[in-house]
């Protein structure tokens, strides 16, 4: 006699494990993305662009204007990488059907692109430009709290005590990794309100994006939904942001046409693949384990980003990185060890 309940439990376990696996892929790929994401700032034409803008508008503004162009170009390669991905999966028909279903599906991905693109990414660069990289990283690490809270209030998503504890321990780990840098940055001098606003935008933007996208993912496929979200983000940068900066007198289009250098293109291809698949993994985890858990595990990107920079740039890690990394791993295990049958349905 076959034990149906044991088979059922095993099937639920597989769904939960797959969800956590996608969230972990997201964290690893996000961490790896920091390699091209960092290298590209030192390449032609961005060095020249930064120098030119900084000479007239200051370093903070130069960072933001350059960041908008880099983010727009990053979105181009992400969209191209996802065309290959969805083509292999045979999803083009589903993409058209989902895009046409604006009210139930694609409007949520359009909204997700606004919160995840101009709000969160721009906010993150504002925090970086006006305060510092460590402050921006810590601010962004807070996003799962917003995502989990919104998903709970709006969708009735179950957030168990164990899941909440895991999220907080991972955030504590991330703060330990970057904490020393934040104190140094805040002590360095006067910090503009633009930096704090940017930090707030990063923390809320990605959290809101998760909850909003999950509303669309209720009735849409994650690979397709994510692709539509990036096409919308690309349109925002190309149709609104870049022309606006050009009107304000910044030479964004002049430099955009100078990117055709082998190393610059190679870095954007690398960035597009890692960022695209990191985001696909993020979206794929939401319907399987929920927004709170998916974002909580994806938050391990802080640790993987530090590992990437240690491995590829030879940065010597401080002891805080080891303590923070250990906390991140503990937090993950707190979440992984949750009883899978509690997650039979993700919502109340």
């Amino acid at each position: 006699m076959v034990d149906l309940q044991a088979l059922r439990q095993a099937e639920h376990g597989r769904r939960i494990r797959n969800g956590y696996m996608w969230a972990l892929f997201c964290a690893v790929l996000w961490g790896i993305w920091y390699i091209p994401g960092t290298v590209v700032w030192g390449l032609t034409p961005f060095v020249e662009m930064y120098t030119e803008v900084a000479s007239t508008s200051g370093d903070g503004m130069a960072l933001i204007v350059t960041a908008v162009l880099i983010t727009a170009l990053n979105a181009v390669t992400v969209v191209l990488a996802l065309f290959v991905w969805n083509g292999v999966l045979g999803n083009y028909g589903e993409m058209i059907r989902t895009a046409k279903s604006f009210h139930p599906c694609s409007k949520w991905f359009l909204l997700a692109s606004v919160f995840g693109g101009p709000v969160a990414i721009l906010g993150s660069f504002m925090a970086m430009g006006f305060v510092g990289g460590a402050f921006a990283a810590v601010a962004a690490l807070l996003y799962p709290v917003i995502g989990a809270a919104l998903a709970n209030v709006w969708h009735g998503e179950k957030i168990s005590k164990r899941a909440a504890m895991g999220i907080f321990v991972i955030i504590a780990g991330g703060i330990t990794i970057f904490g020393g840098g934040v104190i140094t940055e805040l002590q360095a001098g006067s910090v503009g309100w633009m930096g704090y606003l940017g930090g707030l935008m990063a923390a809320t933007g990605w959290g809101i994006e998760g909850a909003v996208a999950d509303k669309g993912l209720d009735v849409a496929n994650a690979d397709v939904g994510l692709h539509l979200r990036f096409i919308a983000e690309l349109a925002i940068w190309i149709i609104i942001a870049l022309p606006l900066l050009a009107i304000m007198g910044y030479p964004v289009f002049t430099y955009a046409f100078q990117i055709f250098q082998p190393l610059t293109i190679l870095m954007f291809v690398f960035a597009g693949i890692t960022f695209g698949f990191c985001y696909v993994s993020w979206y794929k985890s939401f319907p399987l384990i929920g927004v709170g858990r998916g974002q909580g595990i994806a938050n391990l990107y802080g640790m993987f980003a530090v590992i990437s920079t240690i491995l590829f740039f030879g940065d010597v890690p401080q002891w805080t990185v080891l303590v923070g990394g250990a906390l991140c791993i503990v937090g993950s295990f707190i979440m992984f060890s949750e009883e899978s049958l509690e997650l039979e349905t993700l919502r109340n």
Binding site: E94, R97, T98, K100, S101, D218, V219, A220, N221, V224
Partner: peptide
Amino acid sequence: SNLPRKIRLM
């Protein structure tokens, strides 16, 4: 069907 898969299944 012109509907996305999950909507059609429901």
